[in-house]
Design a protein around this nucleic acid. Sequence first.
DNA 1: TGATCTTACGTTTAGCGTAACAATA
DNA 2: TATTGTTACGCTAAACGTAAGATCA
Lengths: 287, 287
Amino acid sequence: MISFEDLEQLTAFARHGTLVKAADALHISQPTITRTMKNIEEYFGVKLFERSKNRIRLNGTGEKAVEHAEKVLDAARQMMASVREYDRSLRTIVVESCAPAPLWFIVPQLAKKYPAMTLSSSLAGNEEIIEHVREGICHVGIVLTPCTEPSIHCRPYIQENLSICLPPNHPVLQNAPASLDFRDINGFNCLLRSRLGFWDDLCRREMPASRFLVQEDDDEFRELMRNSTLPIFITNLATYREEDMNGRVSIPIADPKANVVYHLISGKNIDILGTIVSDKNITAAIL
Amino acid sequence: MISFEDLEQLTAFARHGTLVKAADALHISQPTITRTMKNIEEYFGVKLFERSKNRIRLNGTGEKAVEHAEKVLDAARQMMASVREYDRSLRTIVVESCAPAPLWFIVPQLAKKYPAMTLSSSLAGNEEIIEHVREGICHVGIVLTPCTEPSIHCRPYIQENLSICLPPNHPVLQNAPASLDFRDINGFNCLLRSRLGFWDDLCRREMPASRFLVQEDDDEFRELMRNSTLPIFITNLATYREEDMNGRVSIPIADPKANVVYHLISGKNIDILGTIVSDKNITAAIL
DNA sequence: TGATCTTACGTTTAGCGTAACAATA
DNA sequence: TATTGTTACGCTAAACGTAAGATCA
């Protein structure tokens, strides 16, 4: 019989041109490769090589064999990868959220309840999340609107309220407003974190006249906060330390779109949502 | 590392349900299979089985592994088959003809010149043959019309002339004609061999009012000849023994379509046609 | 009690590397 | 002479089957 190693040696020979180089590359002696080529040829029962006294080359049939050997090896590698990936997926809870803040609460909750499981969390669009939960790709989704699909569990989870933080001398603060609307601040440029999920789209849609200075890195963002007077956004779930705020004053955004209730969704055959994330836990998370 | 045998054992276990039955089917001891399943599991590094004390079953991951193992084994089998087939194709001369008679001459010629080669001869349509020669699938083609394609060698090979053999008292023989046309015999039913290539189509097209009693088997055809007075066809290349003819009289068919010159064609990169089948050989073949 | 899987043990053998050899450029 | 491929030899380690043991229906 023939082995995967044999095929590896064959393809290595095809790649490197000589038995010596192939042996080198595979860290084996070249008598071994000589033997293996003989074995393979005998096993196939056909001529695969043109041999002169100190030279061996693939013939047409040999090239055909190499071509197929690559396919076999690919299939084998694919097998390993797929099986391991499948096994890993069994130990992984996939969480997708339309905004980052809910993840800060749900992920530790799940991690505590399922210490053996890997948690995979990511941001995604609302519709995409629902689709993934429906397909079973995503186990726990966090979306903006209640989901009424019969195959999907849904419950309210947590709410997030947006405020704008303006420097004390900012024109819109002249009348000391208790709240603002997007249109009041539209046109003023802002500092913005990246990877904000739906918040990002919302701000750009509601403040088309504004430009946003986007920063992904946490430290650099704080650096920018301290050294500029550009407005920034905070929420009840996402605040910054006072010393980074550079004296800014927070005013809530009254617009309903800036005050959302996140909903937890999951497939009905999964009990993660019902048993793991109890209302009590949610409350605790908010506090 | 893992081997093809290991994968065979895995799939055998999946097929048969127990290690004992799988071992039986593969003619090995079942401790061997126990070991192999362990090895495979260890090699994958994931759980593939649910084990109780005297029972072992595939789990979901295991079924995934089996699925992929089948693919790998298929790829391996495909490799063996393809390489052997390719090797065989190198030792095979493929001959395609639009009629059987030329094959009776060309095949022995080629067999004599290339004793190490396998000959594969078959009937095919004129256009199909040209296509196959163009693609290199067919090495030597025998067609009805000269081929002018620059990539194809072509030369006249041999001619075949059709005659009809009628019982002596047949009405169309009353004026003792030197030759006949298809229309003269259209409407009379005939005995016909099958697998006649283009002759078959020709007769049916030119004699739409006739019905043909078709017989493939050689002995049975002769039996029918002896025991009936139905007209039959012969050619200069294909005659029958006088005792089988049952007194029939041969009259040539004058129609040009019934008198053809076959042409040999082959790819220009193949010298079979030029060096092997010389004009002298062809003449000899006709005699 | 029969069927199934696992573990232990002894033997065989397949396969590896070292070394020596032969041929070529 | 350096490079390449083949052959010969001795050793190791992997793998097999037999036998014995454990568990379940």
